[in-house]
Amino acid sequence: MSHQQDIARLLQGRSFIELSARERAHSLLDAGSCRELAGPFERLYSPWLSAQGIVTQADDGVVICKGLLDGQPAVIAAIEGSFQGGSLGEVGGAKLASALELAAADNRQGIPTRGVILFETGGVRLQEANLGLAAIAEIHAAIADLTRYQPVIGIIAGTVGCFGGMSIAAGLCSYLIVTREARLGLNGPQVIEQEAGVAEYDSRNRPFIWSLTGGEQRQACALADALLEDDSTLIRQQLLQFMARGLPEQPRHRRSRHYLERLLAMDSAAQADADSARQLFHSGEKP
């Protein structure tokens, strides 16, 4: 993709969701600054998928782009949701973990590299099960390390959403940007229905699923920080704003005492809905 195309896209205010992972990364970085690392022509195919007779993708579904955001050094890790449901295997997981680790190492050497993760993922790739899980633990470790120096910003645009071990990674980010098409949850609807029954979780009831885990609800519950229209320009602007804001005073995951108290005080016998969730997250807040 040429820089002229980058600029043209930004001026048009195009859909972000429609872009591929690679295009998303290009559209966010400063024009002309994007450099892809460990890219498709390195042919880092998943050794485990091909061993199972499954067609592989040359980048294993993870795109790492280094460049500038508002003139500041940054790395964007973008997950391609349309390849194997955005699942993370050994290769893609290693790319993501390693990129964030290198960003943290930069900071220890005085280079203030920021991290951005574009989530579009069902979590662990089951065909690479334990190596996917291990890589996700390493991604968690890398985010925890990098957020000691710089904000790590997650973007969940849709339409795959962000699930499994990667929803935990989203929960470690300093800021989360979502759209209405985004979903964020630990367990995929199908798995919950299988484990707990259709009365507990009806995976085919889309309004129900979105009312609990959709971007709008997550933002209303302060589990995400910005709810945006599906627009590349707006998303980039918000990303730059969060970058400029620096590290949050108290990240969500540091409020354990607060949430523990709220959860213990609530009526856990009653089944949950969107309203009870909003009440939980807003109870005890300062007006």
């Binding site: 022509f41 042919r43 993708q57 040359a58 349309s82 390849f83």
Partner: peptide, 30 residues
């Protein structure tokens, strides 16, 4: 050149320069 994605009903095509006179194509198909 890279176009496409290995998504359902789709494909990915990678082209890299080769020595003059030779066009070698490898296809992995589901």
């Amino acid at each position: 050149v890279l176009v496409g994605v290995v998504a359902s009903g789709d494909l990915e095509v990678l082209i890299a320069p080769a020595a003059a006179g030779s066009c070698h194509i490898v296809i992995h198909s589901a």
